[in-house]
Amino acid sequence: MVSIAQGTFRTVLLTPEGRLLDCRASSVLLPSHDGMIGILRNHAPMLCELQKGIIQVKNIPDRKNAYYLIDGGFARISLNHLTILAYEVITFEGMDREQAERTAALAKESVATKGSFVSNFDEEIDPDRAAFIVKLAHLSEIGND
């Protein structure tokens, strides 16, 4: 029997800098204000505030899973259309592998020494955010060897 939650839905990630993602996915994990929530097809209409954390977009046809570190925002799901409004988004997508590994290494060092670092996104990253970058790198399979 086919479950009601099976299948894909449209997922759009919007930031003030542009549209970072517009695809169909079958599962999305969001850092909601009170913990992680999972979105599947046919989810009830929902408006949800997001906090700092990682958005995990899974099972995208013809491409790898996508991961984004956000600083907060909103998610709106209605009629199988998920729109995420987020700001200060960090992702390893489209980044050169060497550069991504260097950022991941700097983030690991920042977590270990509890000091800030300036990333190649030209912003100062505090140890708290660096911990999320380490997790983002792990999920994106960067610097895992």
Binding site: H33, D34, L47, E49, F74, S78, L85
Partner: peptide, 18 residues
């Protein structure tokens, strides 16, 4: 029609500032 998380007042507070 929407499930709201957190309350409308809190959501609006964040949206307004954003």
């Amino acid at each position: 029609d929407f499930i709201l998380s957190p309350t409308p007042e809190k959501i609006f507070d964040t949206i307004a500032k954003m």
